[in-house]
Simulated assay, not measured.
Amino acid sequence: MIKNILVPTDFSNYAYSALFYATRLLASKECTFYLLNVYDQLTPLEGGKPEFLVGKKLLEQLKVASNDNLTALKHRINLDNENPLHRFETISKKGNLVKTIHQMLNPYDIDLIVMGSKGHTGAKEIFLGSNTIQVADTITQCPILTVPKQRDFSKPKDLAFVTDYKRGCTKKTITPLMFITELFDAKIKVMHINEEEELSKEQQSHKEMLELCLKHIDHSFHWVRAFSDKAVAIDDFLKTKGIDMFAMVYYKHSFFERLIHEPVVKDISKYTDVPFLILPYKD
């Protein structure tokens, strides 16, 4: 069950798009959305920073701006959403974004983090924005949903789960994916990039374990030929199969970690058309 959602925001259109998408995704569920803005001395002020604003005075001004923008954001999403099942709380913090998110997970019982894939500080030459990668590297107990650009919501009917079968996958790990799948009576297409002629015994065992986890879900298995760039292989699969959301499990030192740190030479928009659910591994 997903009840408490943390939505970091830099007040960009990308961040708002992610928030709005999340409200539509969970429209039928009673939820609390925590709208988080984290600022420090490097945070830009609207209209620029006057030269006389330094140190404590600057931070005080940034705090005022953060709270004012959060109030406006809460008002806007309440007008756009109008869902009595949803509640919005605003949180303004000085400090580091990743550390602040980590500190909030347990006290607020966060079930899902939702982020726009490109904001003011998003890197343009990598698979995901730098903030998202830092969060994925650090947050090991909570799934992260990244929403691309200004994505219009459509009910997810076909979801993809990307795996190399080199690590086992428990039902607890993919529970958020199954929750969304069941919410919309959707299907899961398991995508495996074919880097070998046949699966090893260990890989076959992991595939059977996954099939057992999905036995009550409409699902299918797909082998995809290897590309030199795995991001291209994933993108091709998402497009040809009409995928509405895709998911991967984030293991340290794995195919996933190599993928998200892999420079993308071609147009970054190719890789950010579909919402991406990052699942932490759970025993």
Rank of each mutant, 00 (worst) to 15 (best):
L183I: 01
H102Q: 13
I174G: 02
G95P: 07
D185E: 15
D185G: 14
C169W: 05
K155P: 07
S130F: 09
R167V: 01
Q134S: 12
R167I: 03
K118N: 04
Q150F: 01
I77M: 03
N106R: 13
T175C: 07
K99L: 12
T173D: 12
V147L: 01
F161K: 06
K172M: 11
V114W: 09
H102K: 12
Q141Y: 02
E125I: 07
I188R: 06
F153C: 03
K149I: 02
N96C: 07
F184A: 14
T100D: 10
L105T: 02
L145R: 02
P156H: 07
I91G: 05
F127K: 08
I77T: 10
N78S: 15
I188P: 02
K74M: 06
T173V: 12
D185L: 13
S117V: 05
K171A: 10
V162Y: 00
K94A: 10
L183M: 15
K94V: 07
K157F: 08
N83K: 05
V135F: 09
D152C: 05
R167K: 15
I77N: 03
N106E: 15
T163S: 11
K124N: 01
P107D: 05
A136I: 15
F184C: 12
D80V: 00
H86S: 10
D158C: 11
K189I: 02
D158S: 14
Y108E: 00
P176Q: 11
A123S: 14
I113K: 04
I110P: 00
D80W: 03
P148Q: 04
K187R: 14
L79F: 10
A160G: 06
T100K: 01
E125N: 15
T163A: 10
G116R: 03
L112M: 05
Q150C: 08
T181S: 13
I77S: 02
K124L: 03
T170N: 08
I133S: 10
N96L: 04
L97R: 08
K157V: 02
K94C: 02
K118D: 06
E125K: 13
L145S: 09
K172H: 12
